[in-house]
Amino acid sequence: MKKVAVIVSALCMLIAPLAGIAANPDQDLKNFRKHFTEKFSSVPLQDFTNGVYSVDKASREQWEAFEDFPPYEIFVDKGNVLFNKAFKNGKTYASCFPKAKKGIKQNYPFFDKKRGEVVTLELAINECRKKNGEKPLKYKKGKMAHLSAYIAYKSRGHKGNVKITSTPESMAWYDRGKKHFYAKRGQLNMSCADCHYYNAGNKIRADILSPALGHTSHFPVYRNKWSLASASGDGMGTLHRRYGGCNKQVRAKPFKAQSKEYRSLEYFHTFMSNGLTMNGPGIRK
């Protein structure tokens, strides 16, 4: 086991210079964006928020048909009811998200200096519940995904605005996320980047791989696949639910939703799409 760890870390060190793991987030963002805008030179920058449909015409037509009356509207409605329903103490979520009118989602995740950790939207939702004497919600689907969908919907049109404060602590979170993105994992020995950076637009079996640029702007998502697996047809899921799915698909053990690892990944991943317009929730296959 130790040997494996040594090899992995050696590999990471090898990859690190190639992937440009020098702690300069702004330069990282430039390189990241350039990779995609050069690879898909006919795709307008803002269109990357549409995920795989920005680079695949055939599936885009089907997606546009879904967007004509997307099933996620059912769950945005449910989220709206939850968001505005008073807690037992009479307060609502609005008490925790006072700037709701200016959009909420585009500022998440952020590094909370006092606490020394990254706070995601879903974490903030549960902390709001805790503060008001309510039980926490599960992080991957259900009510949490409905609330997240409603907030995403109300934040549409705002540009991604994740701030990377350059303190050693916040940089540690950023670097951890970046490492997760580029490091190979699982029995299939594949990284996030293998699929969604280097091979974006190419096929993996019958599927076309989505570009990582713009990934985070359309979350949470309603997946037809998730809907099919749900007795009620509820296909909504959060970003961390999808991360878990991705890790499983390369046959790696997924981390827990809202774990330090996934929050770090979300921090890096979302920062890479800064400046892209919020268009969540989305509908995916």
Binding site: D68, F69, P70, E73, I74, A231, S232, G233
Partner: peptide, 10 residues
């Protein structure tokens, strides 16, 4: 007319 119905359709 466009309509969306919330139903499991098992």
């Amino acid at each position: 007319v466009k309509a969306l119905i919330s139903h499991a359709m098992e």
